[in-house]
Simulated assay, not measured.
Amino acid sequence: MKQRRIYLFLILANLFWAGNYIFGKMVVSELTPVQMTFFRWTIAICILFPISQIVEKPKWKEVWKKWPILLLMGLLGVIGYNFLLYVALRFTSSLNASLVNAMNPALIVCFAALFLKEPLTLSRMVGLLMSLIGVLLVLTNGQLGMIFRTVYNVGDMLMLAAISVWTAYSLLGRRIKEIPPIAAIAVSALLGLFVLVFFLPTSGNPFPLNGRVVIGILYIGLFPSILSFIFWNAGIREIGASRAGVYMNLITVFTAIMSVAMGNPVHLSQIIGGLIVFAGVYVTTLKV
């Protein structure tokens, strides 16, 4: 029963993150990435701290003793990944961003082997290569021969940087098992905001209070910021970064469904590239 609950948590986490691509694309035309990240996590920490106190009753003094690693997690998972994602969405589609993001599980597997000494089997190496080929199909619009002479979409390249940052965040999450997950997210988000606030004065126009922006910010502040992070961190602690990472493929599936439902086109190169990435991540799970 506990295993089923963890798998459900991971599915829901990625469903809400898929919505982040859709709503993020909708809002990024009216807010700067710094503003989006700041307002998103301001909403989140106002809820995360009370939830943690009610559900986990953490020893806050012990939690704050881990502030260096929590600050690093805040800089990576709270500021770094989200900032890069929202900048990327200014230049690329939500579906393309999620397709590049689909390579993340394979990266997590390889870096978990490198830094956490998780076994790196032949199947995982082959899976990473397949995932890389799939992402390159997306980046080159299906023309792999253009790899060394094409000008890549800036948004797609920023997404490659974003998934590298997220990989580092996921691996760090394994090193604070003694801290309750919600408390860890709350403190890391708060520390991240302390840094981000210094960039707000240079982030552009004032916050526009229209319905489109309010709905978008409320969604990304509540669902991907609170529920997804809680579910994701709970999953990593129970089944490990490598196994949990496989579920990140669902982001692309959910994003594609939402994009099609909203009338956005899906191209053949995106479908083929996505399928190869999925196949590559599946191969990484084989015990060979």
Rank of each mutant, 00 (worst) to 15 (best):
M1S: 11
Q3G: 02
R4M: 12
R4W: 10
L8P: 07
A13E: 08
F16M: 05
G19Q: 02
Y21W: 14
F23R: 11
V28P: 08
L31V: 00
P33D: 13
T37K: 03
T37L: 06
F38Q: 09
W41R: 06
T42E: 11
A44S: 14
I45M: 10
I47T: 08
L48Y: 01
I51M: 15
I54Q: 02
V55L: 14
K57T: 00
V63L: 12
V63G: 04
L72Y: 06
G74Q: 04
L84Q: 10
Y86R: 07
V87K: 15
A88E: 10
T92G: 04
T92D: 11
T92R: 02
N96D: 14
A97G: 12
A97F: 01
A102K: 04
A102V: 04
N104M: 09
A106N: 04
A106M: 07
I108W: 11
K117L: 12
L120E: 03
G127E: 08
G127S: 04
L129Q: 06
S131C: 09
S131L: 00
I133D: 01
I133E: 05
V135Q: 05
V138A: 08
V138Y: 02
V138R: 03
V138D: 03
N141W: 01
I147S: 08
F148P: 10
R149D: 11
V151A: 15
N153F: 07
V154W: 08
M157S: 12
V165N: 12
T167E: 14
Y169E: 01
L172C: 10
L172W: 08
G173S: 14
G173L: 09
R174G: 13
I176T: 15
K177H: 14
K177V: 01
K177R: 13
E178T: 11
P180V: 02
A183I: 01
A186P: 05
S188W: 11
A189W: 02
L191G: 05
L191M: 10
G192Y: 03
L193G: 00
F199R: 10
L200W: 05
L200P: 10
P201M: 10
T202R: 15
G204I: 04
P206T: 10
N210R: 13
N210S: 09
N210E: 08
V214K: 09
I215E: 13
I215R: 12
Y219K: 07
I220G: 11
P224I: 10
I226T: 07
I226Y: 14
I226Q: 13
S228I: 02
F229C: 12
F229Q: 12
G235Y: 05
I236S: 00
A241C: 02
A241V: 15
S242E: 15
R243K: 15
A244D: 09
G245K: 06
V246A: 15
T252E: 08
V253T: 06
T255A: 12
S259T: 04
V260L: 11
V260N: 05
P265T: 12
P265G: 02
P265F: 10
Q270K: 00
G273L: 04
Y282H: 08
Y282G: 10
L286Y: 07
K287V: 08
